[in-house]
């Protein structure tokens, strides 16, 4: 499997809304902590080290 960098999210506007919504009312520190937890949850779901490495690269 390769890292999928093509559009893959249904209803992109809806997702974006939910992402921002999850941060609403959080302080900067709380938002940073939330982001870190989210990254870890997603990374675990992916699991595959090659894909994770490619994602780290793609995010640069």
């Amino acid at each position: 499997m390769k890292l999928n960098l093509a559009p893959n999210i249904n209803d992109p506007d809806g997702f974006y809304d939910e992402l921002l919504g999850a941060h609403s009312g959080l302080s900067k520190d709380e938002s940073d902590a939330f982001n870190a937890r989210l990254i870890l949850v997603l990374a675990n779901h992916i699991g595959d080290r090659d894909i994770l490495r490619a994602a780290l690269e793609a995010a640069k």
């Binding site: 940073d32 902590a33 870190a36 937890r37 990254i39 870890l40 949850v41």
Partner: peptide
Amino acid sequence: ISKVFRNAVLEL
């Protein structure tokens, strides 16, 4: 940031 991740791991 490494502290943020460390604490995120502990919370999760």
